[in-house]
């Protein structure tokens, strides 16, 4: 059963069997507006926690996406190349960005659960 975590940079990561699926949160996609392009890392890249691994662009803004954990990129969401709008339609589902093989699961302890993240977002507004 996958476990879901959130970062203060508005990424989510769903972890199952040592593999994390990463995307941006519903809140983040609303802030960005219509996503027009997502630049993803190459499969096989080794990532440190906090590295900027992807870029998500709307018409008027571009945001770096930071990896919430360390590890190796094992898969990227190829569908986003043709359909970046998936990030808007389903930020926390089909709009995922990449999958990463975690090198240190203890890093997850620094992240938030859904309830804490919702409270964090509320505090921003």
């Amino acid at each position: 059963m996958a476990k879901l975590y959130f970062s203060e940079e508005h990424e989510w990561i769903s972890v199952e069997g040592g593999i994390g699926t990463v995307g941006i949160t519903e809140y983040a996609q609303e802030q960005l507006g219509d996503v027009v392009f997502v630049e993803l890392p190459e499969v096989g890249t080794a990532i440190e926690k906090g590295d900027d691994v992807a870029v998500v662009e709307s018409v008027k803004a571009a945001s770096e996406v930071y990896s919430p954990v360390s590890g190796e990129i094992v898969e990227i969401n190829e569908d986003l190349a043709d359909a970046p709008g998936q990030v808007n339609q389903s930020a926390e589902g089909d709009g995922w960005f990449f999958k990463i093989k975690l090198s240190d699961e203890s890093e997850l302890d620094d992240l938030m659960n859904r309830k804490d993240y919702d409270a964090f977002v509320e505090g921003l507004e």
Partner: peptide
């Protein structure tokens, strides 16, 4: 235009 300085600044 997200490539450009007025949006991307130092990047």
């Amino acid at each position: 235009s997200t490539r450009e300085q007025h949006i991307r600044r130092e990047k």
